[in-house]
Amino acid sequence: MHADIHLALHTDRAAELRHEAWEFRLPRTRLRTRIGWTMVEVGLRLARSGPTTPYARPFRTA
């Protein structure tokens, strides 16, 4: 296959794939929000669970 034809086919296919990916894309703000609140929930569960060993010190806040 000639190099120019190969480059043109590659460019067209890359544009098609970008277009398909753009249509399938999830909104970033919703995903970031869900991940953020999940991290907060996990942090609160870890903080509430208490020390795992009798020698562990409790958390101190300033």
Rank of each mutant, 00 (worst) to 15 (best):
W37A: 04
P58H: 07
L31Y: 00
W22A: 07
R45E: 15
E16L: 06
I35S: 09
I35T: 04
G36I: 06
E16R: 13
R32V: 01
R30I: 08
T29P: 04
L46Q: 10
H10Y: 08
I5Q: 15
L26E: 09
R18L: 12
A15G: 00
T53G: 09
G50Q: 09
L46S: 05
Y55P: 00
A14S: 09
D12N: 10
E41C: 13
P54R: 13
A3M: 02
G43K: 04
L26C: 06
G43A: 14
A56R: 08
D4W: 01
D4V: 05
D4Q: 03
L31N: 05
P27W: 03
G50K: 02
T61S: 13
M1H: 10
A14W: 06
P27R: 06
V40W: 14
D12F: 10
E23G: 00
L9Q: 13
T61Y: 10
I35P: 00
M39N: 06
L17C: 01
V42E: 06
R60V: 09
L17R: 06
R25D: 01
L7P: 00
R45S: 08
L26K: 12
R30W: 06
H6Q: 15
A47E: 14
G43E: 15
A21W: 02
T33E: 10
D12V: 02
E23W: 01
F59V: 05
P54A: 01
M39D: 09
R30S: 08
A62F: 14
F24H: 10
I35E: 04
W37P: 00
E23M: 01
R45Q: 10
A14P: 03
T38M: 15
W37Y: 08
E16K: 08
L17Q: 11
M39C: 03
R32H: 02
R57M: 08
W37F: 11
G43D: 15
A14H: 08
H19V: 02
R34G: 03
R30Y: 02
V40D: 03
T33M: 08
H6V: 03
H19P: 00
R30F: 06
Y55N: 14
W22Y: 01
R32A: 12
R57Q: 10
A21R: 11
I35D: 07
A15H: 07
D4M: 05
L44V: 04
P54H: 02
H2G: 11
G50E: 00
T52N: 05
T33C: 07
A62E: 05
M1K: 07
A21H: 03
L46F: 09
E20I: 00
R13D: 05
E20H: 04
R32M: 05
L26H: 04
A62Y: 11
E20K: 14
T52V: 06
A8K: 10
T29W: 04
